[in-house]
Design a protein around this nucleic acid. Structure first.
Lengths: 210, 210, 210, 210
DNA sequence: TATGAATGAGGGTTCATTCAT
DNA sequence: GATGAATGAACCCTCATTCAT
């Protein structure tokens, strides 16, 4: 059948199918046969290009990490006003995860399966974000009574939680909006909640306290 | 070898080992042989007691769900002051997850592997919590400019995130406290952040706005 | 549950269930669990009474052989006219097989599975029948140009074949009679065919030949 | 070990061994390990080529059905005189079954195990034969006082019975001819019996009756 | 007599991987 | 680059049988 002899396009095809399969079933739950069937490329050839299943998994993860990083970076680059960088980044992350759960799911799988490749990429990202929060605190843009790590946790944690549970919410709480509408609504609420949380103590409040 | 002939204790032994194994490696990643080796009970016997691997998994999940529910209920029962129920529940959940990640991990696995047993138990729990948040809003104990779902997401999401990433934080941010200390510190910070987030608009703030 | 402590009735219950199961699925295809489930008696107890699965199978076969022998003997005993013994026997066999195929099926299984218990009982029966055919030939009641074995084969073979294929005939040849009616019709035709086949050469035919 | 890398020959080898094994022990009684050992091909590879044990069984049956059909068709094609087609077919079937009981046994297994693949092929064959018997009756070559189905049963039934019991006959009736001789003798007797049975009523007999 | 706990072997099947073509 | 034949280990599960109770 497939005799195109184009290694690169073959690899890309495999990576696409593998990403979906790994996202759906994790590393252990995905067999090369599944990927092979999904993209019409014999498992022999898959192994020829990627050495081993584990290596293929790693490449999928690296691909995803790079893609995600790019999305985040582009978002902060797009922000003209420097004060809006944080906001833009947040929105970009939210939208990226909302639209395609592959990254979110594979990142979860990787965590559970102790596959560290993705984890490390995420760790670097987190460290960068923590640094930015600290800067915001220094510039009086974030409440400095909380540690950067704590604020970060309050920021990203809900995003993860939302992506994972939004459908369940819709079902069990009988919310009647469409998934898309629900998502947009939450995004706005989320931004407002984050702003309330981050808002530094107002002077008059500080006075009140005294 | 094993000649105890006590079905109940055998089942308990298996359940304990299975919980650990499933938490560590998920359903697909756990083989009966692993469990068998971990608890010294032949896989034939495991199947004799639990019919199938899937059923064993389900029972592990049911066990966990019941255990967690009990912890939560006991916590809210212990609270003397009615206003503190929410706080107590939050602390109990935080501590339960912090001490033993089995529940958290298996719940994640179940989500990823589309095993619905645990999911449904969680869905019921979430619905109950959303109801409580709504009541808090009615009684003026929570900011009613946000939807209950949104507040809930901002509450539980960070908990999940913390449990999952605390070690990574310690490593990449070079935090020098012990894991236990770090955990206690975060708990306090977390409570304070939640309180800030939930705090209803003060009247004078409302005035300021106007 | 079952605490009647009546070994004999237990054995009988097991034998009944086992006969059906073995008839349906053969020796290899029947598991003790199937029998156990069918009659509500634990497989431990089944083995306690019958030593082994193989022995249980043998007992089922012996039961069947004895039962069949009795039917045949009673038939020939009922025949008042000595000349009708053969006919009665034939009819009895036909009816026994037609009503309950357990004997027929288990006899087939035994043949295929090289389980000799039933085979030997059948062999003795066949030898007896061959002897009777020889006597009929001596008394001028059967065509003596054919060997007893050949006549016997022409007599019993069709019976077996009919029992096995009657349903298939009904289906593929679109015969519209009820199974019971079809069976009765064939029985009569069969008797007539056998009589034609057995009929000794008439004298005038012999003359014609000369 | 096996490094031939010739899929077709491998499949043929497996089919040969499988045919024997299934004929000997039936579907349930045959394990892939048995076949694997018999032909020196690992069960993994067997499954690679045949997908499943059940599918392998089906292919064995299809092979046999095709082979048998060919034998039958060739026999009737060989007959020069049109009146001898029936006879030739009968002889061919008799010889095919006598020489190799694989077809006969597997057909029996299939009947007992309710595996319909072979059954249907046989059903078609039987329907065709019934049609031919009817034609013979129309052309005055077969006694039309009997139904085609009845005549067919009297024809094929004894063949089956003979193949199954000839050895038993030899043993219990102390026949001293060789198996081959016995077989040839029976074939001739069988043909003569069939001819007597099929012979239409002679006119003078009809007269005698009147 | 009766149960069911316990075992160990073997069942069919899937799997990642190797290798000849 | 591409296929699919071939392997062997591991998978879940079923089985007949033993044995403590």
């Amino acid at each position: 059948m497939r005799k195109e002899r184009d290694g690169e396009s073959t690899k890309a095809t495999v990576l696409r199918a593998a990403r979906q399969a790994f996202a759906d079933h994790g590393f252990a739950g995905t067999s090369l046969a599944m990927i092979s069937q999904a993209c019409g490329i014999s498992d022999g050839l898959i192994l020829h290009h990627f050495k081993s299943k584990e290596n293929l998994y790693r490449m999928v993860q690296e691909d995803l990490a790079a893609e995600y990083l790019q999305v985040i970076n582009q978002a902060s680059a797009r922000a003209q006003d420097e004060r809006q960088i944080a906001l833009q980044t947040l929105r970009a992350a939210f939208q990226y995860w909302s639209e395609d759960t592959a990254y979110y799911r594979i990142s979860l799988w990787a965590y559970l399966e102790n596959q560290s490749a993705l984890i490390e990429s995420e760790a670097r990202l987190t460290a960068g974000l923590a640094e930015k929060v600290k800067e915001m605190q220094i510039h009086g843009q974030a409440d400095d009574r909380f540690s950067p790590v704590a604020l970060l946790t309050m920021t990203i944690g809900p995003l993860h939680f939302w992506v994972r549970h939004r459908e369940e919410f819709r079902r069990t709480l009988h919310l009647d909006a469409s998934p898309e509408q629900l998502n947009r609504d939450f995004e706005e609420e989320f931004i407002r909640m984050i702003m309330k949380l981050y808002q530094p103590l107002l002077e008059d409040q500080a006075d009140n306290k005294a």
